Simulated assay, not measured.
Amino acid sequence: MKKIIILLLAFANFSAFAQKPLFDYPFGFQAYTFRNHFPKGTEQTLDLIQKMGFTELEGGPQKGQTAAEFKKMCDDRGISIPSTGCSFEELEKNPQAVADQAKALGSKYVMCAWIPHNGNNFDLADTKKAVEVFNKAGKVLAENGLIFCYHDHGYEFRTHEDGTYMDYLIKNTDPKYVSFEMDVLWTIHGGGAASPEQLLKKYGNRWKLMHVKDLKKGVVGDKSGHEPAENDVVLGTGQADWKKILKLAKKAGIEHYFIEDESEKELINIPLSLAYLRSL
């Protein structure tokens, strides 16, 4: 009887482990998702976000607000701000100001989502400039207890030597000062130079954050960094293999996942995407 009880307990523990959801981190959102709502009222938008079940935000103060004011509004609703954004120009000109705002928001990460370049002509010179700026600014942020991340946008996957400009960026930036945020849609849209799964395996813990975003089936990426809003679709209905991606992301050590929906149907798409993640 004792052996049977032990076996039953072991089976119960195994079953509980087997049924543990794949996506078990706090749900975060990228503020750009609600770009049409925030101008109508920050508090009412945060109320809507809270009701959806979000507890983490990637973003910053809205127009006319200080970082402290925005943080208090989020705090009052149980929403933390682990990551905030900045422009390339801000990083280049005044990284200390970027650090000061991030700390005022209570953020740990600062991300930049665009490297300036001429039209669709992203090239080696643009990449080298980014390496220089990211290493210098990343050092300042690190000295302030922050982690800098560059968010890929598709155009970095153009071929360079035996790899891509994204490979060049990752290999030539200092891991002490520069990390990365994977935007799954833009990685797929990069034109097949490397899948999200391949990049997570190749660069492991250089990835710190993730934009959970899906690209419509049938869309072929063109390395432009641009695509129509209607190509953002409900998670699980597009091209991304989320089970594989999330398993590899967890293995790489990514802790913050921000759902971003650039469509004009975010109030329809987001609840469906959340339901999909919870089903994994």
Rank of each mutant, 00 (worst) to 15 (best):
L22F: 02
F23K: 09
Y25T: 01
Y25A: 01
P26Q: 13
F27H: 13
G28R: 03
G28L: 09
F29I: 15
F34P: 13
F34S: 01
R35C: 04
R35A: 04
F38L: 02
E43N: 06
E43H: 02
Q44N: 15
L48C: 06
L48S: 13
Q50Y: 08
K51C: 08
M52T: 05
M52S: 08
G53P: 05
G53M: 01
F54T: 10
E58K: 05
G60M: 07
G60F: 04
G60R: 05
G60N: 11
P61A: 11
K63I: 11
K63R: 07
G64Q: 13
Q65P: 06
Q65Y: 14
T66Q: 10
A68F: 09
E69D: 07
K71A: 09
K71W: 01
M73A: 05
M73C: 02
C74M: 07
G78F: 01
I79K: 02
S80W: 08
S80N: 07
I81K: 13
P82H: 10
P82Q: 11
S83W: 12
C86E: 14
F88N: 10
E90T: 09
E90K: 07
E92S: 03
K93I: 00
K93D: 05
N94I: 00
N94R: 06
Q96E: 15
Q96S: 07
Q96L: 04
A97Q: 15
A97P: 10
V98C: 12
A99C: 14
A99N: 08
A99K: 06
A99F: 15
D100C: 04
Q101T: 09
A102I: 04
G106L: 03
G106W: 00
K108N: 03
Y109I: 13
M111R: 08
C112Q: 14
W114Y: 14
I115W: 01
H117S: 01
N118Q: 05
N118T: 05
G119D: 15
G119I: 08
N121P: 03
F122A: 08
K129V: 01
A130M: 07
A130R: 05
